[in-house]
Simulated assay, not measured.
Amino acid sequence: MNLPQALLSHRTLVIEGVDGIPRNGLIAQLAHHGFPVQHLPDRLHHVDPTRPYRELLATPGRMALDGSIIHELVYGPLHRGHSRVTWIQALDFAESVAERDGALIHLTASVSCLRPAPSDSTEAADAYARAMRTLAQHVAVVSLDAADLTHLPRPGTPAHRELGRNQQQLTVRW
């Protein structure tokens, strides 16, 4: 699945990836396609880190979350030696996203694309890959290379939908 397919088939998208990957173009595209983008504070709730996410996922309509508790699951061990989010909480979050017809957008990039390139970017990329493989058992995961973000259509460009004659796959072309 690619981003245009995700835009058509999901009403909840969670953007995740290593710190330093440029996201502004993707966020603009999501907003253009009717996804209000939510940015939650970096500080997690001190008692229940998943609470703000549960509250957001309980609201109706389309939405995109820029980052989530998966960031803590990856960076907590790298920065503090442990995560304040448990795997059970992360799996519960993934299932909540899936129940809301959602998907995780896993942004990837080569180290040269990161701005600025964090010193722990290789370890974080490996941790994100492991986390996404695990979470993909509970929610759809769309992997998207940051280099591909430059090929997204500009806002205002209409999408044309067509169904291939011999394929049971929806293709979207701009």
Rank of each mutant, 00 (worst) to 15 (best):
R62K: 11
N24K: 13
T171Y: 14
T150P: 02
L170T: 13
G61E: 01
N2V: 05
H33D: 14
A90L: 12
A94C: 02
A124H: 04
V14F: 06
A146P: 00
R11P: 02
G67S: 02
T157G: 05
R173L: 15
S83N: 07
A6L: 11
Q168F: 05
A31L: 12
C113A: 13
D19K: 10
P41E: 12
E72Y: 02
Y128V: 04
V97L: 07
P22A: 15
P155R: 08
G25K: 12
G164E: 14
S96N: 13
T150R: 12
R115L: 01
T122D: 15
A58C: 14
R11M: 06
G67Q: 01
R133E: 10
L114Y: 03
A31E: 15
G20A: 07
P155N: 02
L152M: 14
L57D: 07
V172R: 03
L104P: 00
T50D: 14
D66I: 11
A64E: 11
S68C: 04
V142F: 06
I88D: 08
E55C: 03
I69K: 06
R154H: 13
P41N: 06
H39G: 08
D145V: 00
L170F: 06
I15K: 03
H106R: 09
Q167I: 11
A98Y: 01
A28K: 12
L26V: 07
A98M: 05
T157H: 07
L13Y: 00
Q89W: 06
A129F: 02
Q168I: 08
S119W: 07
V47N: 14
P153N: 03
R54Y: 10
R165L: 15
I15N: 01
L44C: 06
A117C: 04
A147N: 14
A64V: 04
P60D: 08
L26D: 00
R84N: 04
R84E: 13
T50E: 13
D92V: 04
I70T: 10
I27T: 13
R51D: 03
A136T: 11
T86H: 13
S110I: 01
H32T: 10
L56Q: 05
N24Y: 15
L91P: 00
E99W: 01
L152Q: 09
H71M: 10
T50H: 13
A58T: 11
H82E: 13
A127I: 08
R173T: 15
L56M: 01
I88R: 08
L152G: 02
L40I: 08
W174Y: 06
D92G: 03
L8M: 08
S83H: 10
L152F: 12
Q5R: 10
L3T: 06
I15G: 01
L7C: 00
L149N: 01
N166R: 15
D148S: 09
D101N: 15
A6E: 04
P52C: 11
M1D: 11
S68V: 05
H79F: 13
R84W: 09
I27M: 12
L30R: 04
D92F: 00
T50K: 09
R84G: 05
H160G: 13
A109E: 11
A147E: 12
P36A: 04
